[in-house]
Every structure is written in structure tokens, then in C-alpha cells.
Amino acid sequence: MTQADIMERLTEVFRDVFDEDELTLSPDTTADDIDGWDSQTHVILIVAAEQRFGVKFRTAELESLHNVGHFAQLIGAKLEGR
């Protein structure tokens, strides 16, 4: 899966979670850019992404996930490593 594919699917995850059909993401998007991206929603996003991509994040990784680009890279690395 290319990084663009991952971004596209990740956008769908975000749209579902934030219930916002028009939402767009860039690699620089952070929690500050999206209304309602608080610590609770952060967990929801992670779980939704785990489900969508069939991956599992480690506890330590969760603490560093703060922008979308990093999120997508980590997913890419996990998919490669399988």
C-alpha cells in the first residue's frame, strides 16, 4: 500500500470518527487543527485505524502519535513489516 493509499484510507477513518464527510487531511494536520480531537477522541482514532488497517500500535508508539503524517508513516511501516 502506498503512502497515498494510506492517507486516503486514514482520511475515511477520520471522516467516520468526526462524522464529517468533507474533512481533509494533510501530513501536517495535528489535534489543534480539528475540532473535537481531544485525548478521548485520540484513543478512538487509534482504535478505528487499528481496525481499518488490521494493525496494532504499541503502548510507546501511542504516546508519540501527534500528527497525521507520522500516523500514516507508522501504519505504513507496520504494514511493510508484516
Binding site: S39, Q40, V43, I44, V47, A48, Q51, F57, R58, T59, L62
Partner: peptide
């Protein structure tokens, strides 16, 4: 345990 350490969730969101 991951959800517990991260957010004190007993029941996972899914």
C-alpha cells in the same frame, strides 16, 4: 492493558 495504560478504559472502544 494497552487501553488501560493509555486511557483507563476497562471496556475497549470497539
Amino acid at each position: 492493558p494497552v487501553r488501560w495504560h493509555q486511557a483507563k478504559q476497562l471496556v475497549s472502544p470497539e
